[in-house]
Design a protein around this nucleic acid. Structure first.
Lengths: 150, 150
DNA sequence: GAGGATGGTTTGCATTTCCAACTATCTTCA
DNA sequence: TGAAGATAGTTGGAAATGCAAACCATCCTC
């Protein structure tokens, strides 16, 4: 009851805090939170418009205009899929990759004051806990056994 | 280096995840993420427009229109400050308080699947770690009682 | 190979946000 | 004290974001 509430409060608070940092850093590079996210996703992938939209929980049309703008800016490019003429695949240009790297550095720098308050052991702990919360297979398989039975 | 990076990745990923949940829940009540946040802030405070804007990192004018809409909707109200005729103070109406409670319940419910993957001890741990990260005075400052190590 | 399904784009609309310009109220100091 | 400047909010204009609906183009099914 209280513990779960505490976590949720902390989660929500941290979310707004981190989102604020991301918004600010993004803004410094003329990127919205969503654009930031798209760049992050595409940095190691090449996705179709629909998949990207599904991933972000956005409408296809929203995705389309967003990509169009990024393309106009030279950050992304669209390519045809040889197997299916309807499909458009989106991927990053060198300029996009370069910008993404720069932004990631800035984000790292901006978050360091916050994470710097934790010692290495706590950092590892936090990473694992967050992995669990955000439904990511834990990186250090420290969670043995079957999942608790609800 | 790697550990800090892991945490940042997890932090960013969780941020997007939680923000997504908040956006969805907010949307169900016709509230944007920012409006949600304003309600959260004002639930135990009464603030001037400028302070609210500073708190959220938004422009005064943005704040102004946002408040106007919420006021039109009956969620917030504006009051004069007797000491300074320029100041406008914003506070919640009963309807706003009621809606906020409802939304908070929904958020709790929506986040339960995620936090439910942690046992009570991990929940406490996570809450404390996040408190440190988001620069909140830790709630269990000295970890009293039977807190297990690790 | 006709009809429906799927993938994207375009258009129209509401919302969010910024900046600049404006009004009203305070504060300073000459 | 009273004019000049600072501060608090609001308003208007513009760009970005997002959705929904209408629309092509391509694929798949029978």
């Amino acid at each position: 009851m209280t513990v779960a509430d505490d976590v949720m409060d902390a989660l929500v608070r941290t979310t707004f805090e981190v989102a604020g940092v991301l918004t600010r850093i993004g803004g410094e590079h003329d990127l919205s939170l969503t654009q930031l996210r798209v760049l992050g996703i595409l940095s190691d992938r090449r996705l179709r418009v629909t998949d990207l939209a599904a991933y972000l929980g956005l409408d296809k049309s929203t995705m389309s205009t967003l990509i169009a703008r990024a393309e106009r800016r030279g950050l992304l490019a669209r390519g045809k899929n040889p197997d299916d003429g309807r499909v458009v695949e989106v991927y990053m240009t060198p300029a996009g990759i370069e910008l993404t790297e720069r932004v990631k550095d800035d984000i790292r720098r901006a978050l360091t004051p916050a994470t710097g308050r934790l010692d290495p052991q706590q950092l590892g702990q936090l990473a694992n806990l967050l992995d669990v919360v955000s439904a990511r297979p834990s990186r250090a398989h420290a969670e043995p056994g079957p999942t608790a039975a609800r």
